[in-house]
Design a protein around this nucleic acid. Structure first.
Lengths: 158, 158
DNA sequence: GAAACTAACTGTACGATACAGCTATCCGGG
DNA sequence: CCCGGATAGCTGTATCGTACAGTTAGTTTC
């Protein structure tokens, strides 16, 4: 069965294979797009930095390890990431008043501003890309992606 | 306008913002999933290697630069990637008969086998994750992702 | 209050990628 | 037919994101 890498069996499997293919492709394209867009003006807001700001914005200031757990990243990665972000004035670190070991990370206005700018740019990009899509299709895509992520997330945390 | 990073204006923008959010999230989760799954047995089939095999399988043997163009990667990256894959017996290199500068890369049976195994594992994973989805929703997701990728791709190549 | 635990940081390593520079080959105009 | 510009692939080098292991300082438990 598919030793040659081509056809699958049931219709279900075909659909799953297509989803697998498209997700893999999307990740490649997304990478390429991020590389192509961000590097110029916005620098630094590469990868995790953006997601960290997004998360701080939506979930409020929090400790490094909370961030790491939430983002499925190693603590050391987050430490370095926030160090770089602090250097660039995007976040501020303060000792956690309720735990002497902890460090509370909060976004600075500049960080939020930068995040909003990147977000707006990306939203514009998607608006451009999906220009000829029916609004209903966009809605459906957003909805299904959300469900997919939820499913993936609960799966990951096990 | 969203200097604070929260609400957007029109309904269109809200949807686009959600798509942007979900795509970003998906990329993070996808990375985490790949890291969690692949590293054990299949090694080596990290990242690009899998996509390279997929592409060789579906589009046939081809030159390094054709691969690079198709995958939005630098030629040097692909060179190193296929070197590693050759070392691991996943692909074979042969001089291009029609162009003395070129090197034709083709998958080996072992490479195709490996690819099929990873693909089957991922398909199984998606089947697991999407276990309680209606077949119609899966179809729609596959379809919309495909359209999204097409749109992204034509956009990228400009 | 000592032992076990935990938060953050630091050292080190690896993988994926890009860019610049090199060599070998190709092709089109004089 | 040969010479100069283009192209294919490779190598050197740099960067970024990440992980794992170890360190230090503070916390919790008995």
């Amino acid at each position: 069965m598919s030793e040659d890498g081509t056809a699958e069996g049931t219709a279900e499997e075909v659909t799953l294979g297509r989803i697998e293919t498209e997700v893999a492709l999307l990740m490649r394209l997304g990478e390429a797009t991020r590389r192509a867009t961000g590097t110029a003006e916005h620098r630094v807001l590469d990868r995790a930095a953006y997601v960290i700001l997004r998360h701080l914005d939506s979930a409020g200031p929090q400790n490094v390890s909370a961030l790491a757990a939430r983002l499925n990243l190693d603590g050391s990665t987050v430490t370095r990431q926030v160090s770089a972000m602090q250097r660039d004035g995007l976040i501020a670190r303060a000792p956690d008043p309720s735990d002497g070991r902890g460090t509370v990370v909060s976004p600075t206005p500049a960080g939020l501003h930068r995040m909003a700018a990147v977000r707006a740019a990306r939203t514009r990009l998607y608006g451009d890309i999906l220009a000829d899509w029916a609004p209903a299709d966009r809605d459906t895509l957003a909805h299904l992606l959300h469900r997919l992520n939820e499913a993936l997330e609960t799966r990951t945390r096990r």
